[in-house]
Structures are given as C-alpha cells and as structure tokens.
Design a protein around this nucleic acid. Structure first.
Lengths: 196, 196
DNA sequence: CGTACTATAGACAGGTCTGTCTGAATGGAG
DNA sequence: CTCCATTCAGACAGACCTGTCTATAGTACG
C-alpha cells in the first residue's frame, strides 16, 4: 500500500512519464476530445489497466497533461526572464520566447485555450486554465509594476491581451510571420505610453 | 422541384431556419463536438431525415452555422461602423460593439476559434474560420488606411491582435470588466502612435 | 379525387468511446 | 526457489455517435 515508502529504489520514471509524454504530444496536436485513450496507450506502450491505475480517468490524465504544460511554460519563461536586467527587457523576452514557439513546427496554439473549448465548463480543465491564466497575468502585472508603469494592472492586462491575441492569431493564421513583428511593435508602443 | 417558384404562399421559414437556430444556440454554447445530432433535431422539432435531406451531414450543418455567424457579425459591425463619421470612430465602434457582446449572458467567445479547436484540420470548419479572419483583418486594415496610418497593414494587424485577445480573455476570464476598459485604452494608444 | 412530394417518428446498423475485468508474464524480496 | 505485486495484452460491457431506412401522415396541385 505505502507506495511512497521506498526511498532508495527508483525504477519508475517509466509508465507515468511515457503516458504524460504521449498525452502531451497527441492531446496538444489533435485535441483532448479527438484523441482517445487507445491511441495514448498505444503510443506510450502501456497497458490500459496501468493508465487507469495511475490516473483513474481520462479527465485526470488531461489535468495532469495541462499541469505539465503549465510547469514547462513557467520554467521556460522564468529562464528567459532571468537573463535580462531591466523589467522592460524581461517583458520583451517573454514575447521573444513566444515568437520562438511560433516558429517551431509543432506549435498548435495555447493548450489551455484549446482544451477549454472542448471540455465541459466547471471541470478540472477549466480550473487548470484559470490557474495558468492567473499566473501569466500576475507575471505581467508584476513586471509592469517593476518597469515603473503608472497603472501596472492596466498595462499588465494589456500585455496579456497582446500575448493572447498573438498566440491565437499564430494558430489560426498558420504562423503568419507578421504576427510576431506587429506584436513586438505594439508591446513597445504600450510600454512607451505607460511608463513616464 | 422549383422550390423558389412560389412567390405568394410563404409557409416555410421552418425546418432549415429552426435547425440553424438550434445549431446556433447549442453548438455555440457547448461546442460542435459535444452536441450531437439528436439534441439539435430535438430542440428544432425536426425529424432526423429532414436534417440529412437539407444539409447532408453534420459537417455541412456546422459549416452553415458558422456561415450564419459570419453573416450576423458582418451585419452587426457594418451597422456599428455606418453610424460613425471618422475612421477612428469607426474603429472604436468595432471594439464598443465587441464589449457589448461581452456583457451579454450568452457570450462564449469566438465561435470560429472554438469550432476550429474541435474540428479536424483541413475541413470546412477551417475554411470558414479562414474566411472570417480574412474579412476581419481586411476590415481593420482598410480602416487603418482610411485613418491615415503610416503602416496600415501593421496597425490593422495590431488591432486584430487586440480584438482576438479581448475575445479570448473575455471567454477565459469569465467576463472580467477590466478587459473592455484595458482594450479600449490600448486601442487608443496604438492609434495615437500610428497616426501622425 | 388521385398523385406526387415532403415531413415525421423511430428503429436500426456500424462504429467509437470510456472504463472494467481476466488471465498470463515479469521481476524483485525474502 | 517462492511469493507477491505490478504490468501486460486484450476481451468485454455499456453508452453514445452518425447516418440510413421504413412506414405513416399531411398537403399542394392537376
């Protein structure tokens, strides 16, 4: 029973991680509703019973998949921010990191937005999306305050609006390169106007 | 055969319109993948055979639903624009009309964005979304040019980014009223910066 | 009146989905 | 070696989906 009472032997890193990797690839590329359990376990090389022993239901697997994306995005943006000195450069680094994502071949928009469009309201998917969006907005508002904005919540919200719009347009307009360029210029204009 | 050859008697306006009305309500509120054919015909009070005689498949019904939303949005925005004199006021009127949508109780985000997240790539849904987005972007670019922007395509794209971001945030953040306010101020800032 | 045409309700087929269960194989601990 | 826990492959149940078909009822028109 006490699964966590084996401190030394760590032979796992197998079933759960392979399932999450398969979920991350298939759910993100084709949608959580479209991709069935069978394709997940097929790609992961894991038995169906193991999946239900580890996660309990498909919804739990979807929630874990979204949590892993939340963590990965947090790590990626934190690393991008740490390289910069000024708050203004940190803000630009976030949009540069996003623009770099757009150029990757397996970009399919914001995972939380897509999953939320497919899932029922009030479930774990909606909660995961709320947490991610709150984290992003808080990040923008804190950077806006550090940059010396007169109204940091307004500027933070505006930056979040541009971030959302750019991600959505990059998905819907098939990666038009003008999106990143226009976004970058709009961010600069808003920063210049908001910081005295 | 010649269905259009009955000029006087107009008892129709029935099956097809009721199906489209039911599709517009259910597909938009709950998603095109979640809502099944049975619920559509149930709400419309139409037999299943009639639906397949009129539309041929569910995908065709979804395409007709999206086309009807495209038309309705076009009519709504055109009416809002016509009341204004200057191009700048017309642009603001578009965002005011969007903000008014956010306050309605049955707002659930952009129908094309949501449907596109659920549907397979390369189908009729994606084409309908492409057409709608091209129409919106052209509208913004033309207004930016009329407003005297030095780079109308860039300003038009930026306005579209804000429009997308606002619609997405309004859906994901449960209608936070700060969205409309921040969007409006950002639009003004971008207009001031782009128009000499 | 008779004759097409169309709409209706609902059964039905064929497929897919989630989640459970069975039985065999595996692999480390005592 | 023996035991026990986990994993595997896959069958299975129950539900839901799209799309077709049958049989019946209503209706415009010659």
């Amino acid at each position: 029973m006490n699964r966590s009472a084996s401190p030394t032997a760590v032979p796992q890193a197998s079933a759960r991680e392979r399932l999450l990797a398969a979920a991350n690839e298939l759910f993100y590329a084709e949608g959580v509703q479209t991709v069935g359990i069978d394709r997940i376990i097929d790609q992961a090389g894991v038995a169906k019973a193991s999946l239900y022993n580890l996660f309990g239901s498909k919804e739990e697997l979807v929630a874990a998949y979204l949590q892993s994306r939340h963590d990965a995005t947090s790590v990626r943006l934190t690393a991008a921010i740490e390289k910069c000195e000024s708050p203004r450069e940190k803000i630009m680094a976030i949009f540069d990191s996003q623009a770099k994502l757009f150029r990757s071949s397996d970009f399919h928009g914001c995972a939380f937005t897509s999953a939320s469009a497919e899932a029922a309201a009030g479930g774990r998917v909606e909660r995961a999306a709320d947490e991610f969006r709150t984290w992003m907005r808080t990040l923008f508002i804190n950077l806006a305050r550090a940059a010396g904005a007169a109204q940091p919540t307004t500027l933070g919200r505006q930056l979040h609006l541009l971030y959302d719009g750019a991600g959505l347009a990059a998905r819907m307009d098939h990666g038009d390169p003008s999106i990143s360029k226009s976004t970058r210029e709009a961010v600069r204009t808003l920063l210049d106007a908001a910081i005295s």
